[in-house]
Design a protein around this nucleic acid. Sequence first.
DNA 1: GCATTAACAGCCG
DNA 2: CGGCTGTTAATGC
Length: 227
Amino acid sequence: MISLETLKQVAVWSKELTPDEAERARRGVSEKTFGKGAYVSHQGDRFDVWAGVTSGLVKLSTVSDSGKQVSLAGLTTGAWFGEGSILKNEPRRYDIVALRETRLAMMDLSTFNWLFEHSVGFNRFLVRQFNERLGQFIGQVENDRMLDATGRVARALAYLFNPMTNPGVGCHLAITQEEVGLLSGLSRQVTNQSLKVLETAGVLRAERGGIAIRDWRDLAKYGTMAG
DNA sequence: GCATTAACAGCCG
DNA sequence: CGGCTGTTAATGC
């Protein structure tokens, strides 16, 4: 279990709960650290917790029918994930991998179900999150084949910097070019060149071991148009 | 063409 | 030193 203060810090949704609900939530959440490269869960697992990123960076990926790894999204500070598998009571459809040392807040299933049954604020949050993810998913299938390397990098970063799904991210993120490549489904070398293009376009600033952006919507636009 | 891997030099903490 | 970055060369779809 964690303190109420910690809960408020790592979970924006907790601010919408009543005091009683927040107390329940705090008692059902514990924290765990994952090392670089560690699997949080494998595709097909019954992963019986709902989890939020306290610090670090995780990647959702799956294996395509042709057998190669496909990255779906990156998640960073403030992002919560896993509700889809819990609500449908089905195995995980994705691998979840820590791209660097990552601390996760993990809620047990009974607490999640209690909040789902009793808390209006919790359900509002879930609906908003589903809505945002649906928008991302539609963008993904519509544009996947049309985007060049630069567009794919821009889109991966736009999702990562999206304050709806990653509420704690801000406009600066410690991430290496190799990690951006892993999220974009590209090699480090091509990612390096794409980042330079985006920097020249003025939508981000590439630093050593980090990226600063002006507005994540600029990246989103870049990631939905070829060019 | 465009992307990938391999290799290497430079840089920085 | 070790990790990150910038670049080039060889190879593949």
